[in-house]
Nucleic acid binder design. Structure first.
Length: 466
RNA sequence: GGAGCCAUCGCCAAGUGGUAAGGCCGCAGCCUGCAAAGCUGCUAUCCCCGGUUCAAAUCCGGGUGGCUCCUCCA
């Protein structure tokens, strides 16, 4: 397995810190709002990583956190009058539902910041004791970036401060402009606070990941985990800061490899609230099938930016349709074993830093050659069993192709419409028998105008929802 | 101001030194009552300029055009 390490900026062989195992921690969402397509893409990217490592035989432990305490959540609490727990649990549940619709496997560990306060306090205390963290007059605790000789090595972002007209404010009691809050002290009565030895308050954003990784992963002398992942925007300052805290607190590096997924744009524009084009996953799922969304969002390499638009999504659906049409040819039935060359080609593609484009082309080729063989010999039992196994492997590795194929083509068709379609098809079959092609073609046109495509096969007429 | 990323057929997108994968669309054909589906065949010299090399989409330099981070952000 080769993966692209964002720190070294090259593809490197994946050599886990424990033989045969892979420990992965991905930065999850701050649960103050619905998940958008960017969350989906990140989740999907690391789902692909996890599935690939599993298929290669690694014992994968995946952790994905929920930031369930932060300024935006507190603001929402104040505005809504609801409790923090009500708000965060609502969005966490929505997140799970929506990710499930995309076929994202659940993480093995799903920690929340509020459930990790002891670990957070312990790590901050450790940093204070080592004098890499300091408390300012209002009770805030800051990390002293000047004490970490390796600060900046993760993101390559921190140069000489003279050249760096950063927009970070220099006005506070911070020792260095890049110093960041480990702990934010209580500001007022309404604030949500937790008591600690240093002050009553709540954790800063970066500390939770470091603390939770220490809490849940055993690590080795050199690293806490194998891979730390997240969106490209997290590289700096979030991951730089995590790395610094962990390094200073534990004496070793946080992660051996760092992976970051690219951004989602909408019709060529950055997705943002100010542009009013935030695309929530829940809205996308109202219009498009989750599996099609999965296929589409995963069809571009995870490190590239992704430009979401409906035309490309429909193209992706057409491609997925072809897999399901092949599946129709082999359903029902039981699989035997996968075609070795096919399986190996897929694994090779995914082993190259998740080269999904090659993987999809391998699948397309399999579909074409299998169809060709079935065209020549429709009753090929061995081929049928092998094809079933091949598709099952696709489902395991890439997370699509698992549906019953006839129902896949009927998504969004209710019972009433279904009955109407069946009635029209029956009438058309009679017309065809009577050689009344004018009538049969009229019926076909009517069905097409309803968004229903039909195809005459040796076994009768079948239909698909476009 | 600082730090990066990207630019390949009409569209999406692989390929990081050895002579351009795959999908969509389009065209031709097989199949079909006609279609659809499926299959077959056809369709690019890689943003521009210069350099290195026997050989470059791939390396180097300079442009042009997009994008990201440095502030909460997947």
């Amino acid at each position: 397995m080769q993966i692209y390490d964002s720190v070294q900026k090259i593809k490197v062989p994946f050599e886990p810190i424990r033989k045969g195992e892979a420990s992965i921690y991905v930065c999850g969402p701050t649960v103050y709002d619905d998940a958008h397509l960017g969350h989906a893409r990140s989740s999907l990217a690391f789902d692909l990583l996890s599935r690939t490592l599993k298929a290669l035989g690694y014992k994968v432990t995946l952790a994905k956190n929920f930031t369930d305490i932060d300024d935006k959540i507190i603001k929402k609490v104040e505005e809504s009058g609801k409790s923090m727990e009500e708000i965060t649990s609502y969005y966490i549940n929505r997140y799970f539902e929506e990710m499930e619709a995309l076929g994202v496997q659940r993480a093995d560990i799903e920690p929340k910041a509020t459930e990790s306060l002891q670990a957070i306090e312990a790590m901050i205390q450790k940093l204070i004791d080592k004098d890499v963290a300091y408390i300012i007059s209002n009770g805030d605790v800051y990390f002293d970036t000047g004490k970490d000789a390796h600060y900046g090595e993760i993101s390559h972002q921190v140069g000489d401060d003279e050249d760096n007209q950063s927009r970070v404010e220099h006005t506070s009691e911070k020792r260095n402009p890049k110093d960041f809050a480990l702990w934010k002290a209580c500001k007022g009565e309404e604030d949500i606070c937790f008591d600690t030895a240093f002050s009553s308050g709540r954790p800063g954003w970066h500390i939770e990941c470091s603390a939770m990784i220490e809490k849940y992963f055993e690590g080795t002398e050199k690293y806490s985990i194998d891979i730390h992942g997240g969106g490209a925007d997290l590289l700096f300052p979030h991951h730089e800061n995590e790395a610094a805290q962990s390094r200073c607190a534990t004496g070793h590096e946080l992660a051996k490899y760092w992976m970051h997924n690219g951004f989602v744009q909408i019709n060529g524009e950055k997705m943002s609230k100010s542009l009013g084009n935030s695309f929530f996953l829940k809205d996308a799922l109202k219009v498009y099938d989750g599996e099609v969304l999965r296929y589409y969002l995963n069809s571009v390499h995870y490190r590239n930016d992704f430009n979401f638009n409906e035309e490309d999504l429909l193209t992706a659906k057409k491609r997925l349709d072809k897999l399901y049409r092949l599946k129709k040819r082999v359903t029902p039935g039981k699989g035997s074993s996968t075609n070795k060359a096919f399986k190996q080609s897929l694994l090779n593609a995914m082993s190259d830093d998740l080269n999904i484009s090659i993987a999809l082309s391998v699948i397309d080729e399999m579909i074409a050659t299998t169809n060709e063989k079935f065209d020549a010999n429709p009753k090929d039992k061995a081929l049928k069993k092998e094809t079933i196994a091949n598709i099952e492997f696709i489902e395991t590795l890439l997370g699509f192709g698992g549906k019953e194929p006839f129902s896949y083509f009927q998504i969004g068709v209710d019972e009433a419409l279904k009955e109407k379609i069946e009635t029209l098809l029956e009438e058309r079959t009679q017309a065809k028998k009577a050689k009344d092609f004018t009538r049969s073609d009229t019926i076909r046109d009517e069905l097409i105008s309803m968004g229903i495509a039909i195809m005459d096969t040796a076994d009768g007429t079948v239909w698909e929802k476009a």
